[in-house]
Nucleic acid binder design. Structure first.
Lengths: 69, 69
DNA sequence: TGCTACTGTAACATATAAATTACATAATTC
DNA sequence: GAATTATGTAATTTATATGTTACAGTAGCA
């Protein structure tokens, strides 16, 4: 479940802990999402979008072929 | 959890059953998502995007203020 | 009328997202 | 070198997405 959360987070100069607090989840969940080991819910994706000021497509769109790994 | 799945599905002239089969889920899940009663996972959202040939933003982006109901 | 296709939804079971707690490591800063 | 910060991850628990089965209602069509 590849995504661009980590890049966006670093652009905003946020730590995983800070992003987690702003989103209202735990640091562990942020870590797992960034690592592509979780399949987050839409609601959570939208919350992350709000915090880093990016769209769903910007953060979570990956072409079908490169989605897995 | 408002979204535009129903509109896109009808544009593609698919029934809930047909969309469900193409996505690999049940008709009931499609119904609940269209009704906004479910918070689908990102993976499922992406699968729906593939089938109706729309982006995440086109199907699932709603402004923060109108997201709930 | 009756039949079929499409949709909404409820109850229960299962899979898994996410929380919680905890431990480990690397990179700092003192 | 000790203390702190940021991150990865494992085990367990909890919440919920999704499947399964089933029933009801509407609309169109013979």
């Amino acid at each position: 479940m590849k995504n661009y959360v980590k890049i966006a987070r670093i652009q905003r100069e946020l730590t995983q802990q800070q992003l987690a607090e702003k989103v209202g989840i735990t640091r562990q969940t942020v870590s797992l999402i960034e690592k592509g080991k979780y399949n987050p819910t839409l609601k959570l994706c939208l919350s992350i979008c709000d915090v880093v000021n990016k769209s769903l497509d910007e953060l979570f769109w990956v072409e079908k072929e490169e989605r897995m790994e």
